[in-house]
Design a protein around this nucleic acid. Structure first.
Lengths: 244, 244
DNA sequence: CGTCAGGTTGATTAGGATCAACACAGGTGG
DNA sequence: CCACCTGTGTTGATCCTAATCAACCTGACG
C-alpha cells in the first residue's frame, strides 16, 4: 500500500486538517502544534498502545484504520472503538493508557507528546473545545453501540455495522441517498465479531444469509455491495432522528 | 423522601460544587453561572428529556439518580448511562436530544439554558476543560460497559453492576478495602436488566443464585450486603490497572 | 378487599456459542 | 514447479445460556 507522503508536511496540507482535533485552530495555534508534532507509522496487526502502559503521547489518526479494544483475562475480547482518519487517540490528563490500540491497516499517526499537548490545551481554548466536541460525539457513538451490543440480534448487528462503515467511509460523491453502494471492509471476520459481541462463525453465517437473500453482494471477502441501502437499513433497526 | 434545600442556595454551598462541571470555576465564573442557573425537580419515573426533542437546556444532577436510555421501535430498551449526583446531562452544540432521560428516584437538577451556557463555554476555558474531562471520563466508562455488554455472562454482569454501584455510592468512610459493604439499589430488577442487556427474569435468577452461594445477602429487595467484596470482584472479571 | 407494581420461580424454547472439518489464497522454501 | 504451511473464511452438528411464556407471591395503597 502506497502511503501519502505526510511526514514533514505542513499542517495546512494535511488530509485531516478540517476534521481532527486541530480543526478549529488558527494559523498561530497550528504553528505551535506543528512544533510539537511528529509522525509514526504502523503495519497491519502492529500494536500502537497497550492498556496499563504510561501514556507518553496522544495522537490523531491521519491515514488508515485502527481498533480500540479491551481484553478479559481469559481472552474474551471486545472492540470498543473503530478509529478512522481524524479520530483522536489518548486521554489528556491521564497517566496511563486505558485501552489497547492496534493497527488494522497501514496506519499513520500525527503524535504529540502528552505534556506539551496538555500545556497547549490549557491555553488554547480552540483546542480544548474541539476535543470536548469530539469526546461528546464519541460518547454518543459509544452509547449507540451499547444499544447494539445489549439488545440487537446478530442479523441486526451485522446490518448496522455495514451501514456504519458505509456512512463513515464518506466519499465526496455522497449526495443524499444513493440507490446502491459499495464498501471496503477493513476488518476480518474476527475483528467484526469482536466489535459486535459475536463469534466469528456467527458473523460468517449472517453474511452468508444476507447474501443468499440478496441484501448484500460479496465481491471477494472484503468488498461488499449493498444493492439497496434502505432495505438493509430496515434490517438494522437504526433510528436517526436527524441526530447523527 | 426529604430533599436537601438546594433551590436558591448559593453555589458555594452546593453538594456537588467540587465534582460537577463547575468544579474548577473560580468565584467570578461561579457568579456568572449562578445568574443563569435554575433548579428543577422530578419524581420517580418522571421523564426529564426525550430523544428528538429540542435541547433547550443542559443540567447537572444535584440530588438523586436518573437513567439515560435508548429504545428500539419494538420496545427493546437499553440503558446507556446511570446518572448520579454531579453527572452532566445534555450536549452543548447540539440542537436535539439524543437519549431519553428519566428520573429513577426523586431528582433535583441544576439547569442552564443551553444558549447562554454555550456562550459561557466559549469564553470560560475552565468550564470547557472540565466538560472535556468529564466527557472523556464518561467515554471510558461507556467503553468499559461495552465490554460488559458484549462479552460478560449474566453472572458477571450482575456482579459488575453491584460493584459499580458500590464504588459510585462513595461514602466518606471509604478508606481502602473494607471487609464488607452494604449498598442501596436505586434500580428495579427491570431497570437493571435494561442496563445489563438481560431480561428481568435472568437478573432475578442470578440474584437468587448469588444469594444462595452467600456472595450477597439481601435485606429486602433493594438493600444488598456484600460480605466479601473481593470474592464478588473475582466473579465480575473486573480488571483495574489502577486506572479507574 | 381488590388491584397493581415489583419480584420470584418453573418449564420450555431458541439464538448464538462451541467444537470440528474443510476450502482457499498467498507465501516460502526445497 | 510443487509441497507445505498459515491465515482467513465457510459450513455442519451439537450444546448451553439466557429468552420467552407462565404461574404465583408479596406488600402498598385506594
Amino acid at each position: 500500500m502506497q502511503l501519502p507522503n505526510v511526514s514533514g508536511d505542513r499542517c495546512a496540507a494535511c488530509p485531516i486538517r478540517h476534521r481532527a482535533v486541530c480543526a478549529t485552530c488558527d494559523d498561530t495555534e497550528l504553528a505551535a502544534l506543528e512544533k510539537i508534532k511528529y509522525y509514526r507509522s504502523y503495519t497491519p496487526g502492529q500494536p500502537i498502545m497497550w492498556r496499563g502502559d504510561p501514556m507518553d503521547y496522544v495522537a490523531s489518526v491521519v491515514v488508515g484504520t485502527a481498533r480500540l479494544e479491551r481484553t478479559l483475562e481469559d481472552g474474551r475480547k471486545q472492540m470498543v472503538g473503530l478509529l478512522l482518519p481524524s479520530d483522536f487517540i489518548g486521554r489528556p490528563g491521564r497517566e496511563v493508557i486505558s485501552h489497547d490500540v492496534t493497527a488494522v491497516t497501514d496506519v499513520t499517526l500525527c503524535c504529540f507528546r502528552r505534556k506539551p499537548f496538555e500545556r497547549m490545551l490549557n491555553d488554547t481554548p480552540h483546542l480544548s473545545q474541539r476535543l470536548m466536541e469530539m469526546a461528546l460525539d464519541e460518547l454518543d457513538a459509544a452509547r449507540d453501540w451499547m444499544l447494539l451490543l445489549g439488545r440487537k440480534t446478530a442479523r441486526e448487528k451485522i446490518a448496522s455495522l455495514l451501514l456504519l462503515i458505509h456512512k463513515r467511509s464518506d466519499r465526496p460523491d455522497n449526495l443524499g441517498h444513493q440507490s446502491s453502494a459499495e464498501i471496503e471492509l477493513p476488518l476480518t471476520r474476527e475483528d467484526m465479531s469482536n466489535y459486535l459481541g459475536l463469534t466469528l462463525e456467527t458473523v460468517s453465517r449472517q453474511f452468508s444469509k444476507l447474501k443468499k437473500e440478496g441484501l448484500i453482494v460479496l465481491e471477494g471477502n472484503r468488498t461488499v455491495m449493498i444493492p439497496d441501502p434502505e432495505a438493509l437499513r430496515l434490517e438494522a433497526e437504526i433510528d436517526d432522528v436527524a441526530i447523527e
